[in-house]
Design a protein around this nucleic acid. Structure first.
Lengths: 243, 243
DNA sequence: TCCCCTGCGAAAATCGATTATATTACCCAA
DNA sequence: TTGGGTAATATAATCGATTTTCGCAGGGGA
């Protein structure tokens, strides 16, 4: 009854406030998103529990939540595995994402106020400053860039007013990130991302919905096309190997 | 080693083949969808475990999966509760559903073949036969009608070719069902649903995408409008009471 | 030689007890 | 009488052991 500190635990509260389940959930999510866990790999409950120093139940619950986001596949009685990837799925993710995010962008353009505009300008500025001109060595690109990139895209659609659209967008965004991580591993540089972002922001602030959505679609399609090309020429990135 | 029947369990295998977790998951899902569990109600782990005769862990995992579908809200360290309802959420669900399902319908109209058309005709026929003209006593409407209704709507968009669109549609459909169940409890009859369905099917088979989507939107909006009206006039259906 | 059946080992699923945390009720002092 | 703090209780979170199930290898029969 002594460690029951009234306000908060100042001492050894390194990771307190967070349930163990949430902890492994975030760990595993990150590992899947940046490709440390291969698509299709089997997820051994016991091994994961041991590695992250938690019980089976915690791992099980974390994996269930990941399955909900489509990052993990659960086969009744046969355990969990990382969701496989495929070109067909990547195309579907991209196409659906264009529709969803395009919809959200149109709504934001209709409804956004001055504060929304300010958010875009701010996010774009920070992002461009963090982008080193052309991406030459994407492998070493700071992980912060990924966060800033997401923030920029979120700022574009933040005024859409639909929690459900944003929720679906988030799911598709995570799926896209997974494919992008695979691409980065085999990356080909020579793409002026900053310019693309600036053009999208400009069209949005001009309230030119059609043009903004077109640019956004092209932005997404370029990444997908690059990955498709890399898959065809190079080794088969998009095969779901087991671990 | 004796009850290990080769083909299937003929004897006392009432719920075999299914994991306990899946069992409670389906039970709870059904209870939430048809309103037996009130929106906002707290979900006592121990009570649920006792009621369904399973362990805490099973209930916990089932609730986690429900949370993924947005039917249950999980508050870290403070347990689970049935997702609350609100007019704002209902409007968002309806509007987003119109967009998603409209999109899927357009794609189906573009890509659908003869077999797709046949599926629509068949589903419509069965549904209309099961619909007793005007719905006068929806409370007693056979639960099968709900299944046939879903099947009809699924048949319309089955040719869209996008698993992700279908996935999101499913999520929104479940949310809508929950609101519809609340409406049924206070139902007002006098709506010619069969006619609406027939018109949607006709426009779809004519490949008139714009008209089909408009009719579909009206179909969804009518239900929402009725519930909004019922909420304003009658008791506050859309308040999230605890159990 | 090929296929089906039976046993063995590994892994997932389940459980109930234990621990940590939040909420409530209560008491004392101002 | 009221507000703040403390103890008591309820409940969620966690764990490790146990049970059940699945996949595979070996043997027997066609």
């Amino acid at each position: 009854m002594l460690e029951q500190t009234p306000t908060d635990g100042p001492a050894g509260a390194r990771r307190a406030q967070k349930s163990r389940t949430l902890w492994v959930f975030e760990q595993l999510r990150a590992e899947i998103l940046d490709g440390r866990l291969n698509p299709g790999a089997r997820l051994h409950l016991a091994a994961l529990a041991d590695r992250h120093a938690v019980s089976l139940g915690a791992v099980r619950e974390a994996l269930s939540r990941l399955a909900a986001d489509g990052l993990v596949l659960v086969q009744d009685r046969r355990g969990f595995r990382v969701s496989p990837v495929s070109i067909a799925d990547m195309r579907d993710v991209t196409a659906t994402r264009i529709e969803i995010e395009g919809l959200a962008l149109r709504r934001s353009i209709e409804r956004g106020d001055a504060e929304w505009e300010a958010g875009i300008v701010a996010a774009l500025h920070v992002l461009v400053r963090a982008t080193p001109g052309l991406i030459t060595d994407p492998v070493l690109a700071k992980p912060t860039w990924v966060g800033l990139h997401e923030r920029f895209h979120l700022s574009l659609i933040s005024a859409c007013g639909s929690p459900w659209l944003l929720r679906f967008r988030q799911t598709l965004f995570e799926q896209s990130e997974r494919y992008r991580a695979l691409l980065v591993a085999y990356a080909i540089g020579g793409r002026d991302i900053s310019r693309e972002h600036q053009e999208i922001a400009a069209a949005t602030l001009d309230r030119d919905a059609d043009r903004a959505v077109d640019l956004l679609a092209a932005h997404f399609n370029t990444t997908t096309a690059m990955l498709e090309q890399a898959d065809r020429s190079g080794a088969s990135i998009l095969s779901s190997e087991a671990s």
